[in-house]
Amino acid sequence: MNDIGTAAATAIDLVVTADPALARIVLLSLRVSLTALLIAALVGLPLGALLAVARFPGRGLVLSVLNALMGLPPVVAGLLIYLLLSRSGPLGPLGLLFTPTAMIIAQAVLIAPILAALSREVLEGLWEEYAEQLRSFGAGRLRAVPTLLWDGRFALLTVLLAGFGRASAEVGAVMIVGGNIDGFTRVMTTAIALETSAGNLPLALALGMVLMAIVLLLNAAAQATRQVAQRAGA
């Protein structure tokens, strides 16, 4: 019995026949993870840039906390958000538990610290190079933030891809807060978990292959964009 071969054949079949159930799951996965990435980036990248330029007492502690948050177990994040969004929790009246929005929140919470910590790392090097020149131009630290974000854009693209990878590969948190509801909150990873539970290992693996292919495509597209943009001198 060649399970991996079966899985590969199943994966190709799923893609070639454009299986509608699969298409829906893939679209939801992309919608959830890309929205989470957008939200996390709007918070995480400026925060990373601010931490790169700011010097204040307790900065080391903040950086340590941020680095620790990068390793936040998804299940813990999921539980926390579950308790917040539950009808019996403080945000219960919003009715967001077991919806795609809850999953977006969970993924954004998971990856925002990653984006912040990695962009801090990347932009601090750039800041060391730019600091004197920007001060000579009369730009304060705050004004340096957008400059660093723009000038570090190619390195930040890699940071964003890392964040997207973590978001789209995540299963523990979205399972808890999304509920893996068929046709509503079922994404690639929870579908894989479900098929694994049903002992349908080749199908689970096939879904995994499709997920990897999608992530690979997105990475390739991002790399190509980066190369074209760099060649164009942007």
Binding site: E132, S136, F137, R153, G233, A234
Partner: peptide, 14 residues
Amino acid sequence: QSMVFQRPVLLRRS
């Protein structure tokens, strides 16, 4: 006033 440094610090732009 402005200043030019020994090693020019150029932005990653055109």
